[in-house]
């Protein structure tokens, strides 16, 4: 299965999104929250790197990230990886994107399809 990593400045936010998305996902789906830094607000490239490695089942990993440096830290984390893992960052809203990605990844879909599902969240209307 494709793994999912949620990156946020807030540990609680990342954990909350993980919880929300897991609810609709297969129990086997690896979703990892990589939020905050040393218990405070911020992003930590090493924590994200560890998250990617933990989420990897050999079929690639999708990252969803919040504002600002979250993307920079996620890209740094990819550079820091110690083994070859296919990782993509989805340019999409975190909550909606994570739910779509989790549902699709749970079906056993490949990384490209999971990314596409996450990107569809950009077009989702609530009203």
């Amino acid at each position: 299965m494709v793994g999912i990593v949620i990156v946020s400045h807030s540990e609680k936010l990342a954990e909350g999104v993980r919880e929300l998305a897991s609810q609709m996902a297969s129990p086997d789906l690896p979703i990892i929250a990589a939020g905050g830094i040393d218990g405070g607000i911020g992003t930590d490239a090493f924590k994200i790197q560890a998250g990617i490695e933990e989420a990897d089942r050999g079929e690639g990993v999708l990252i969803l990230a919040d504002l600002g440096s979250a993307i920079m830290s996620a890209e740094t984390a990819i550079d820091l990886l110690e083994r070859e893992i296919r990782v993509v960052i989805a340019d999409t809203p975190v909550v909606e994107g994570a739910v779509s990605a989790a549902v699709t990844a749970s079906t056993g879909a490949g990384l490209d399809e999971v990314l596409e599902a996450a990107m569809e969240a950009r077009e989702m209307h609530k009203l």
Partner: peptide
């Protein structure tokens, strides 16, 4: 710096 700064300046100065 990469692992302790937390903001954009972490990955930037770290790199």
């Amino acid at each position: 710096l990469l692992s302790k700064v937390g903001g954009a300046s972490g990955p930037l100065y770290g790199t």
